[in-house]
């Protein structure tokens, strides 16, 4: 287990984006974002609250489903993760389906809380493992939640970044555009270009996404892996193997 895994690089990049946050919420089936959030929590010395939705034991809600949204509305959730069957260059996300609504040719599960949380959570990290022209599109077929809003629309939150299996983009809210921030180790700028259907900005030189340092790796493979294993046992076994104690 000395070789650094892709998941560990991505979890580190996610944790960097969440530095200083007080309370992060993570959706149900999001083991890698959860790993990043739990790493950020570990780095905070436990001061950061991480609520894993859909897992009663890993959250502290007492007012049912509305509480997450009510808390986010009053500014109490600093970070959240959203994905999309399609994500476009303006930060719009589509969780509904491909083709003409409502009789989509491909139907996904639905928009969940995106059409609210995208508006009120200051640091939304877009996460899409599959980086391809069918996922990162020029314009989404259905807007579950828009990347930016017109003046006059209450908007205290929105996307700050998009992370994929190839790279990390930062989002510029004023220009409603992504800017390539770094390319993950083992991948190239050409690969990113070839697999992205939307236009994005480029820095003069494109850095590599940083590898986790020794201290970060110890945290990921130790306390973070143990915690992840109690919530996502299958994922933990795949990524961390037998190195973690049974949950």
């Amino acid at each position: 287990m000395t070789e650094i895994r892709d998941e560990e690089v991505l979890a580190t990049a996610i944790a960097d984006l969440l530095d200083g946050a007080r309370h992060i919420a993570v959706g149900m089936a999001s083991p890698l974002p959860a790993t990043g959030a739990l790493l950020a929590r570990e780095r905070s010395g436990g001061a950061m609250q991480v609520s894993i939705l859909g897992n009663a034991k890993a959250s502290r809600w007492t007012n049912g489903g509305p509480e997450l949204f009510d808390l986010a509305g009053r500014g109490g959730i600093d970070g959240f993760f959203l994905s999309g069957g399609q994500i476009d260059g303006r930060g719009n996300i589509n969780l509904v389906g491909v083709g003409d609504y409502p009789q989509s040719t491909v139907r996904w599960s639905g928009s969940f809380g995106s059409a609210y949380l995208y508006f009120v959570v200051p640091r939304v990290i877009l996460f899409r493992w599959e980086h391809s022209r069918r996922t990162l599109v020029e314009a989404v077929d259905f807007v579950s939640a828009p990347g930016t809003s017109e003046p006059g629309v209450h908007r205290t939150g929105g996307p700050i970044a998009l992370i994929t299996n190839l790279c990390l983009f930062a989002f510029d809210r004023d220009r409603a555009r992504f800017r390539l921030q770094s390319v993950h180790p083992g991948h190239t700028l050409d690969e990113v270009r070839d697999n992205t259907a939307f236009d994005f900005d480029l820095p003069e030189t494109v850095p590599q996404t940083p590898l986790p340092d020794a201290e970060t790796l110890r945290a990921i493979r130790g306390p973070v892996a143990e915690r992840v294993a109690t919530i996502y046992p299958v994922f933990a076994r795949q990524v961390f193997g037998a190195a973690i104690p049974a949950a």
Binding site: Y101, P102, Y116, V143, V153
Partner: peptide, 13 residues
């Protein structure tokens, strides 16, 4: 009433 939603296709539909 609720904030958010505006500008999504959910609202338009």
């Amino acid at each position: 009433t609720l904030r958010g939603i505006i500008g999504s296709d959910l609202e338009r539909m």
